[in-house]
Amino acid sequence: MKGTAAGAVLGRAVPAIFAGWFVATVLSQHPDRSYDKTRNLDRTGTGIMIPNWRFFAPNPAVEDQHFLYRLATEDRSAHTEWREVYSIVPRRLMHAFWFPGRRIEKAVFDVASTLVNNPGAMTPLHKEAKQSAYRLIHDFVRSRLTPEPGYPLFQVLLVRYSGYDHSEDPKYDMVFDYEKVQP
């Protein structure tokens, strides 16, 4: 009897859950920000329960994000040229099947987006998030730069460039504070 009752409850609950979940997803695709409240139904804290299907929309990614660095002398009077931190791997057929490097390229996009899109971080939590993003980038660059004697400092620059299309100039989004090569 118990099994049948539980089965009956599940039999009704499951389709109802699917229906509610689908409706919440539909509402969350609305461009009006007030519909974002529906996303609060996701209690996992990850945002994965209610998907965002608006890929490359309304404005697609049309430029690559590049982190550049330059070395500086202690008194900051002299600098090296700006150098690339990470080279994006050119497309290969293999990428259609196996491409673990995709994650880091998307990660560069995500981190750059986090830095550029939250300029007015006011709450302590937001400030901490912003500071930790800067520390993340500084460690990222520090582990990849080529040090030179006489240049104990480095500086990071976030640049957007139009990839294989060389008809446009680079766009400079953000320059970071000086950091020590050896922390």
């Binding site: 461009p31 299907w53 608006r54 929309a57 309304p58 697609p60 049309v62 139009s162 990839g163």
Partner: peptide
């Protein structure tokens, strides 16, 4: 949703979006 959300984008309406995405090293192909 992916289609309709693209409509407000100028580059999608003009038809330039594809070539501009493909010019990127991250999402494109030379």
């Amino acid at each position: 949703a992916s289609g309709w959300a693209k409509l407000p984008g100028e580059t999608w309406r003009s038809g330039d979006a594809l070539v501009k995405i493909m010019r990127t090293r991250t999402y494109g192909d030379e």
